[in-house]
Amino acid sequence: MAGDLFYILVFPGFLFLAVFALIADYIDRKLHAKLQNRIGPPWYQPLADLIKLAAKEDLIPRQVDPWLFKLAPVFAVTAVVTAALYIPIWRHGTPMSFNGDVIVVLYLLTIPTLTFFLGGWYSRSVYSMIGAARSIMQLFAYEIPLFLSILAPALLADSWSLGGMTLFYAHHPWYALFNAVGLFTALISLLGKLERVPFDIPEAETEIVAGSFTEYSGRLLAMFRLALSIEMIVGAALIAAVFLPFGLNLGGPAAFGLYLVKVLGIVAVIALARTVFARLRIDQMINFCWQFVAPVAFLQVIIDLVAKGVIAR
């Protein structure tokens, strides 16, 4: 019981995730700055931002339902931290693993977007409402490709738990190459989920101020920001576990170090993407996701099904 609590609250639960999220946030920002030939923020900047927001007053618009307004960020943080509990870090599976946890993780990762929608929609501000509507529209565009590309490797591994999948790929490392296409589509979908350039449409600063978060301030905004940062590393960890399932056999510190490298590598790719692309429009984003990403993700499913058939014979 105490072990579980430690696992949930401290390591690799909330506390570890929060610290790691801040570090990842720093690396993302520093890299973004370096790529743009700038100096970038000092190492403590993400923490300083968080402290600054936490020290500020929470302003709640008069017309909104204060409960929903306050609960939305809490749900966002809770959902992403919970999702992290099922993702293997230094061994195959976690104490919470069960068959089907990959589906649970995917759905838990959908919850933050829904809280962005609810928080924005009930803010009663035109910018928030447009941002909220865009969040949901975008959700429909990237969710299917993300599900398809994450579940395709599960089909090949014939296991619906992340632990089972990593175990399978540990025994057959070359099979992971079948999923190269899925890695690509999963990364694109992750950009959409994290609302990063080129898919930062729901919070496009120059159009709708801050989208869903326009009316949020103080601790509540800090929680949303933290949720987004944690979602970035959880999403990256999920992709790392599914598509780059190497090194978990090493066990202990080596596997953990490899996990950090993999996650930060994906964070670096995200930072590169937001440096070299312009923001798309919502209609262009939806067209792109349905006309290109979804079919390619579907192709991944077919590849895995065929591979499985060949292997079975």
Binding site: L35, Q36, N37, R38, V197, P198, D200, A204, E205, T206, T275, V276, F277, A278, R279
Partner: peptide, 16 residues
């Protein structure tokens, strides 16, 4: 123009 369409890299480079 780069900044308005979320392409901040162009902003940083041209202003440099």
């Amino acid at each position: 123009a780069g900044h308005e369409i979320g392409f901040d890299t162009l902003l940083m480079y041209t202003w440099r």
